[in-house]
């Protein structure tokens, strides 16, 4: 009799756990084919630009947190030699295969999101090559149907991630790198 009681209470426990967990389940939106483009071109020189169309991004409307992950090898350049060089000698993607971002959309009010573009400031940390850089920028957010669209841009420098640009190419690569992002997040 006692063992039945214990079993019963265990079952109840499991159910209670499940109920609490689902009650607390956060509203999350995810995009696995997000686009991130960076450009460090100098006028008159060969274009230094790469696009990654398989960036993952996740947004929790509850906690107002956003996180994103990009594989370095997913960034494609027009010139494949440049792409190889970027992976091998600048980012060292064998050692540091991922770029990560973690941030907070401080003023996000998920309930008020609609088809009109809302500008929401974001602050967070971008990690590339094991080096962390604080990012502050403003994201443009809108909600169309069940999709939350986020676009924005910010600027970093190679020095932020301890990337040294050698003298011979110093005037062919811009001092500032413009990073653009375009995410279309669907409910998880």
């Amino acid at each position: 009799m006692k063992s039945v009681n214990i079993r019963l209470s265990l079952l109840i426990l499991v159910l209670v756990h499940g109920a609490i967990a689902s009650l607390w389940a956060q509203e999350k939106y995810i995009d696995k084919n997000g686009i991130v483009i960076f450009e460090a071109s100098e006028q008159l020189f060969e274009e230094v630009k790469a696009t990654n169309e398989s960036v993952t991004a996740i947004l929790s409307t509850e906690t107002k947190q956003i996180a994103s992950l990009a594989l370095i090898k997913g960034f494609h350049f027009k010139n494949s030699l440049m792409e190889e060089h970027f992976n091998e000698n600048y980012i060292e993607s064998d050692i540091y295969p991922k770029a990560k971002f973690k941030g907070n959309l401080i003023d996000l009010n998920a309930v008020e999101l609609d088809e009109n573009v809302t500008e929401v400031p974001v602050e967070g940390i971008l990690e590339v090559r094991g080096e962390q850089k604080e990012i502050h920028t403003v994201l443009k957010i809108q909600k169309i149907g069940d999709i939350i669209s986020i676009t924005g841009e910010f600027i970093v420098t190679p020095g932020d991630f301890a990337i040294e640009i050698p003298k011979i190419v110093r005037n062919k690569i811009a001092k500032e790198v413009l990073v653009k992002l375009d995410f279309k997040l669907a409910k998880k």
Partner: peptide, 28 residues
């Protein structure tokens, strides 16, 4: 327990940081 667990489960990054880089081709 679930409350403790929820309190810790706040890192969104961990949820998406599960892509393996094992099967990549060697380059260069």
């Amino acid at each position: 327990i679930p409350f403790f667990a929820l309190a810790q489960e706040d890192d969104l990054l961990d949820e998406i940081d599960n892509i393996s880089t094992e099967d990549e081709y060697e380059i260069a």
